[in-house]
Design a protein around this nucleic acid. Structure first.
Lengths: 210, 210
DNA sequence: GACAAAATCACATAAATATGTTAAAATGCC
DNA sequence: GGCATTTTAACATATTTATGTGATTTTGTC
């Protein structure tokens, strides 16, 4: 028996969800609430398997509710429900440990399937949401880190600089003379177009050189 | 009619896929290949709607193939097929513009549904894959920046250090004496538990202090 | 083997940084 | 007003860094 908790401010939709879930074999609604104001206590009280969480609610909304839930319970599966596939909310919800993200127009049969999917460790998503998630990944790789053509040794030295090593420490770490370290660092500065250690370190972070 | 191109090295599975797709109303296989060695030409020749792409293939594998496809065609929907939900491959594939990611054990009926879903702009994913994708998001938010209780002025000075300013430049930028800059920086080092400019800069980036 | 690039080392010097100590204003809070 | 914190500032000194100008050795490539 999959035990479900529902958060949804619209009374009709809340009732509809409750009837759907309660009316299906293997599912039961523990309780339903119209906002997340006391979500922590409610989740602890009921220990549900799955929570259906509307995003837009007066008072504590779904995103805030999700955060509160994750503070007290990392196990319960939380499925976010929304009317629109708003990019920002999707990202925030997934970042905060939502287990799935569904549009409210999801057909009832699918919804039950999704709830079950979530309890089995799946991550049900409406396909338009999934598409957005994929697009977020494609945004990430703009980290086409400019190539400054650092040699292997230079990269090594830069890594040590980033790690806070002094010239002396680098020399002893790499078993070379301190003057050699100077040479490398001079070359690194030329290639990165900087002229101080901290600028080189900053650039290494900014351009994700390491 | 959804026109499909298949890349799969295993002859049995390739035949099975072809028969499944060809035997279904509204689907047709344009061609099937056992590796991606000439994927660019083949995609241009056939202009398929959907490509089923095995990940593990001898010669040019599925990930390389995906990259090549995206160089010549941004529109075609590419569904990755794999036996295992290997984390690294999933990430790489999505980053390179895959439209979906399916395990080979996906039931035939589901597979057809997924192909159709892809043509409609969806992003079909096996639920175990979707779960992995969600986990990737949850890795991101480690933005729990520890608070080192830097004062307003100290933060300002640290910002300038990160921007590559020397003590002298900071002094003139903030209209204070260089000795005052020293004082602030000394305090900053204490609070961050470092003892050099570059370490402070590195820590600022690592802990996202600014 | 010739050649280019990378890695090694040395010497010199000016500039910047790190560290210590001390202390006067300024600011905010009870 | 008293108190804590922050911001300001000065002085001293040892260390580190930045920059220049060389030179030798190693490595990979044609």
């Amino acid at each position: 028996m999959i035990r479900v908790l529902i958060y949804e401010d619209n009374p009709q939709f809340r009732e509809g969800l409750t009837m759907l879930v309660n009316g299906s074999d293997g599912f039961s609604v523990l309780a339903s609430y119209k906002n997340c104001n006391n979500v922590s206590e409610e989740v602890e009280k009921w220990s549900p398997d799955v929570i259906l969480m509307d995003i837009n609610m007066p008072g504590t909304d779904g995103l805030e509710g999700l955060k509160k839930i994750r503070e007290v319970n990392a196990e319960v599966k939380v499925l976010m429900l929304t009317v629109f596939d708003d990019n920002k909310n999707v990202f925030e919800a997934l970042r905060n440990g939502a287990n799935g993200y569904l549009l409210k127009k999801t057909p009832p049969a699918k919804l039950l399937e999704y709830i079950q999917d979530a309890t089995l460790g799946g991550a049900p998503m409406t396909s338009s949401i999934a598409t957005q998630v994929l697009k977020m990944f494609q945004v990430i790789p703009q980290t086409k880190n400019q190539d400054y053509c650092l040699s292997e040794r230079e990269t090594e030295v830069l890594q040590l600089l980033v790690d806070g090593y002094s010239y002396k420490m680098i020399a002893s770490e790499l078993f070379i003379a301190i003057d050699t370290v100077r040479s490398h660092i001079k070359k690194i500065y030329e290639k990165l177009h900087v002229n101080s250690k901290s600028e080189a370190v900053a650039k290494a972070f900014k351009d994700k050189l390491l």
